[in-house]
Amino acid sequence: MSKEWPLWEVFIRGQHGLNHRHVGSLHAPDAEMAIKNARDVYTRRNEGVSIWVVESKNIAASAPSEKGPLFEPSNSKVYRHPTFFDIPDDVGHM
């Protein structure tokens, strides 16, 4: 059996000024074809102004089991949010 084309992750910038966002994946033999295919698969209705593709095997991801140690420490740091501080109305907009 012939070799399966590698899997690529596709990121699209929807409008000027916005971040690229992950939209899905596809198979393609190389980066050039991946971009061409991404154009057809993910931007048929003007959804993008720019495309990034990266081979899926090159993406490193945090493990679901590490969710606790990674993200819980920030739960207790409520003072990072401006609403933690009560500023009297008399002070005006801040």
Partner: peptide, 13 residues
Amino acid sequence: FRDGLMAHAEKRA
């Protein structure tokens, strides 16, 4: 055709 494109991509890489 799929094999050809793959072979081409590998050669270029």
